[in-house]
Design a protein around this nucleic acid. Structure first.
Length: 333
DNA sequence: AACGCGGTCAACCGCCATGCC
DNA sequence: TGGCATGGCGGTTGACCGCGT
């Protein structure tokens, strides 16, 4: 097997993706889904090969990516899985929702591998290294390198999703006229640390892909349909508090790549049945310590500010997150 | 301030597997 | 059944960045 024909084709762009290209790809995939990757660039108006588009979507654009630092649990899981599976990154990634094989591979090579070597463990066999090897390893791994927890930069898609139509059935729709650049966002550091004048306006919505949650400023809508045409997914509503809405733990499973399935969907104040509520409360009590870490509630983007719920008492989040409380939190910022 | 070095990560390369004709 | 197109995967590369000198 030689190269793919798409790679041989002349005049195709290579290298880093521009925000405009991201917009085009995101727009196309969310609207039409993934059929044949080789036809995607042509239909989406991109001067890229299909393979490049696929990679860009999988590793960067798809909305269910977790991003950010790996948690201790994830780190341990990767270690354990690697011991069993070796460098089968795709299989390892399958056990870590929201993480890509590329991301895990990079994390392994840049951090975990060195950490194991420093501990005198052969990263390939996960067996103790010989004394000589340990000595060599210690010489190889400087204190600086091995003690380093990798700093992971969150590169976010450099465009915004139009809230009125995103998550619309099989696809999102987005407004290509809105971009972080136009809004004053540095796409590399766009998080809520930006000055107020550079925060998005009220009507703009951010897909919070740092977590499995989406917080959506949307004063006019009262419900949200997450279902796709396959009929296999759930449909849910969004709660509405004082002019903004939030979806909690709304994640998107892309197992079939072009299907938009919502998993573990919960909505504050709109839990459908008492039974569900009990189950959810039990789950929260069991995992309250990792609640935030799992990305369930990380960020609320509203008006011109964001709320970090990491300081909010998590176990009582469901009960206490009333409109009044949210109002209170907004007044705090 | 300029330079070099090392680390990180997005993207590419090349191979393999699979499905279709 | 063989050839081709395509998707998937792991290894590798190179641009970029931060830090130290």
């Amino acid at each position: 097997m030689g190269r793919h024909s798409c790679c041989v084709t002349q005049k195709l762009r290579k290298g880093l993706w521009s925000p405009e290209e991201d917009e085009k790809l995101f727009h196309y995939i969310t609207r039409y889904g993934v059929g044949c990757w080789s036809s995607v660039p042509k239909l989406a108006g991109l001067q890229r090969c299909g393979k490049s588009c696929r990679l860009r979507w999988i590793n960067y654009l798809r909305p269910d990516l977790k991003r950010g630092m790996f948690s201790q649990q994830e780190e341990e899981l990767i270690m354990n899985l690697h011991e069993v599976l070796g460098n089968r990154w795709a299989q390892i990634a399958a056990q870590l929702p929201g993480r890509t094989d590329n991301e895990i591979k990079n994390f392994w090579n840049s951090y975990l591998k060195k950490k194991l070597m420093k501990q005198g463990i052969d990263p390939t066999t996960h067996k103790p290294l010989s004394e000589l090897a340990v000595k060599e390893t210690k010489n190889f791994c400087t204190d600086k390198a091995s003690a380093l927890q990798p700093t992971i930069t969150c590169h976010e898609p450099t465009f915004l999703v139009n809230e009125t139509t995103c998550y619309n059935s099989t696809a999102y729709e987005y407004d290509p006229n809105l971009s972080y650049f136009e809004l004053g966002f540095d796409p590399n550091v766009y998080q809520s640390t930006l000055p107020n004048q550079f925060q998005p306006s009220f009507r703009q919505t951010q897909l919070d892909i740092n977590s499995n949650s989406a917080f959506i400023s949307m004063p006019n809508l009262t419900s949200f349909d997450f279902s796709d045409n396959s009929g296999s997914s759930n449909s849910s509503n969004i709660s509405n508090y004082n002019g903004f809405q939030m979806v909690e733990n709304a994640g998107v499973s892309w197992e079939n790549e072009n299907k938009l399935d919502v998993f573990q969907f919960q909505v504050n104040g709109m839990i459908k049945s008492e039974e569900e509520e009990i189950i959810i409360k039990q789950q929260r009590q069991q995992s309250s310590s990792s609640w935030h870490e799992e990305g369930v509630v990380q960020q609320l983007l509203h008006t011109q500010n964001s709320v970090d719920f990491s300081s909010y008492p998590l176990t009582s989040l469901s009960e206490d997150l009333t409109a009044e409380n949210l109002d209170f939190y907004h007044h705090q910022i």
